[in-house]
Amino acid sequence: MKILFIACLSIWFFSSTLFSAPLDVRPAPPVADPVLPTEKDPFFVNSSTGVTHSPEVSGAKVVHHQDLNKKILIALVVASSLLGVILLFLACFSIYRWKRLKKYREKTNLSPVDAAKGISLGPILDKFTSLRIGGKKGSIGDIEYSLLVAATNNFHEDNILGEGGSGHVYKAHFDNDLHAAVKRLSAGGQVAEREFENEIEWLSKIQHQNVVSLLGYCIHGEGHYLVYELMHNGSLEFQLHGPSRRKSLTWHIRMKIALDIARGLEYLHERCNPPVIHRDLKSSNILLDSNFNAKLSDFGLAITGGNSNKTNIKLSGTLGYVAPEYLLDGKLTDKSDVYAFGVILLELLLGRRPVEKVAEGQCQSIVTWVNLHESL
């Protein structure tokens, strides 16, 4: 727009200069002559009007009008050429930018809106491109097993970041200076296979700042591996109930974590199409990066949801986080995730586990504990 404005300004300048410049068409003054002119030669008289005309003046007007027309014509040609060059340059630049944006979207498999915004995962995925090979599920790369072995030092115990019911998580360092987390799934069978496929399917579709990024996967024999972005501060469960015992979690950070979880759930329930019910929301599935930004993880049990109740859904989840209507009647809605979110809020506020042993063979949930103390 600036260039087009300059071009228009230039045309206006040339035009105004040519049309506004005063033109003196009077002939040069004659050289002083002491002899008076006679009536025979210098002037021609029009017999009908009696007006005299000077041939020198008429000739000067014709010459000056011809010069003026030439100057205007030259100015118009120059201005039109300049404007054409500018428009051609702008068209070429627009085409080049469009092709580059299209190439970037195809490379990262992003939507046009996300490519224009510039998702923050771009640098991570660019570093990870060299690890990907032919097979892909969505935008998730199939990684060679040998690369995982080298990156984790053959899954050495010193690189273990954590462990759970589904397997161990290892810290991995790849050659292109990329750090990641590799989950080696220990359970086998059809259930584990289905959850593995479900995790890849959902995380290849979901891209949000409060949902963990899945960078790749690997199937080697009976072993299944998932590669995530590295979350330096581990899980919320580790920060609340681990050896540090909440030392790093100030009240400001706890509020920030709660807001991040709420944003992630709002994205799954309200903005995904179709909506997504996580079904296993708990503090161990809330991961924290180096700045304590919280991200939802572990979508192996996630299913599509909506406003209508889903019945006859196999009971899944973790004791202490399962909603009562889902536990007793098998009714599953997005409110089941909201209930689990409420339990996590109580963990953040009280620092207690969702289920605690109070006596031999007796346990008490954090929700029950709060209800008992509220009634006192």
Rank of each mutant, 00 (worst) to 15 (best):
L68M: 06
K136H: 15
K136Q: 15
S308R: 10
L215T: 00
G216E: 00
Y326I: 07
N159T: 03
V212E: 00
L301I: 04
A151T: 02
D260G: 05
A115F: 07
L203F: 03
R194S: 13
K310T: 09
G50N: 10
E39C: 08
G122Y: 13
S16D: 12
T333P: 03
G221M: 04
V45N: 10
P22L: 11
S365P: 06
F93I: 12
H269E: 04
P55F: 04
A28M: 13
C218W: 02
L73H: 13
Y267T: 02
L214R: 06
A21K: 07
L147R: 05
G264E: 01
E106G: 14
A79F: 01
Q207S: 14
E374K: 11
E360T: 10
L226G: 00
L76W: 10
L249R: 00
D289L: 01
S365K: 07
E229S: 09
H278D: 01
I366M: 05
W369T: 03
V367C: 07
P123N: 08
L328F: 15
A75L: 03
R271F: 13
R26Q: 08
S166V: 02
N109F: 12
C218V: 03
V367K: 09
L161K: 01
L23I: 15
N312Q: 14
P243G: 02
N153T: 07
A359H: 11
I95Y: 09
P243H: 11
S308T: 13
L327T: 00
G361H: 09
T129R: 14
S365I: 05
D329F: 15
Y339K: 05
L68E: 06
R245W: 02
F43N: 11
H232Y: 06
V45S: 12
R184S: 07
